[in-house]
């Protein structure tokens, strides 16, 4: 696939080689995570988007809403993950209207997985789905590259995650209070940002509980100490 010969000749005689185009693609060389806690789930992410070594966007929002209290963390190709998230947002919106009840996190995870699995040879998308619903509470699902679906207590993803497997494993506790869980996510992402060149910028979080979605923002120039809430 390195130098594939797929492509087509467009009207003006310009040959578009899809495989090569992919090479220059905007990549979310990322640190993302989602954790369950006592009252729901928390999603967290850095804000760096890179094209090779160039930072294409330093304040990216990688936490994407697909329904009121079902969100996802995106890693991999920005274009692919945005397209997938858009489709799922549409589907869940339709689900809520036609069934007269909000979708569950499982519904979202199932739709995400089908898209990722059926198009596995076209997509580079690593997703974490996290949501809250009144029946199942807070839940976290991970969909890595091949399109498999994994239910988890907490999930980490993106290039930066490889540096924090150890940190997360030793510091993880089930059923934390919200404050503790926010601290866990923040400290883990701080480590990822520190060691991964493809991760950086601000730390964004979304807390999903019975009360709805609550955004957090932490900035590097204050050492991620102050919450700039929105």
């Amino acid at each position: 696939m390195e130098f594939g010969n797929s492509g087509s000749l467009s009207e003006d005689g310009i040959h578009l080689d899809m495989d090569r185009l992919k090479k220059g693609e905007v990549n979310l060389g990322t640190s993302i995570m989602a954790v369950t806690f006592k009252d729901g789930v928390i999603l967290g992410a850095d804000s760096r988007t890179t094209t090779g070594a160039y930072i294409a966007n330093r304040v990216t929002d990688k936490l994407t809403r697909v329904h009121d209290t079902i969100w996802c963390c995106r890693s991999g190709s920005a274009a692919d993950t945005q397209a997938v998230a858009d489709i799922v947002q549409y589907q869940l919106g339709m689900f809520a209207m036609t069934n007269g009840k909000p979708p569950t996190t499982q519904t979202a995870a199932a739709i995400f997985q089908e898209i990722c699995y059926a198009n596995k040879d076209r997509l580079s998308a690593g997703l974490i789905i996290a949501g809250w619903d009144e029946r199942h509470g807070g839940q976290v699902y991970s969909i890595p590259l091949g399109g498999s679906l994994h239910k988890q207590t907490y999930a980490i993803g993106g290039s930066g995650s490889t540096y924090i497997y150890g940190y997360c494993d030793t510091h993880w506790q089930e059923g934390m209070e919200e404050k503790e869980a926010v601290e866990f996510v923040k400290e883990a992402l701080k480590e990822a940002i520190k060691w991964d060149g493809s991760s950086g910028g601000v730390i964004r979080m979304v807390v999903l509980t019975a009360k709805g979605a609550d955004r957090h923002l932490y900035l590097p120039d204050t050492d991620y100490k102050v919450r700039h809430s929105t």
Binding site: M1, G4, K120, D121, P144, L145, G146, S148
Partner: peptide
């Protein structure tokens, strides 16, 4: 080409 490689 849709012969993938295993991932997980």
């Amino acid at each position: 080409q849709n012969t993938q490689a295993p991932v997980v």
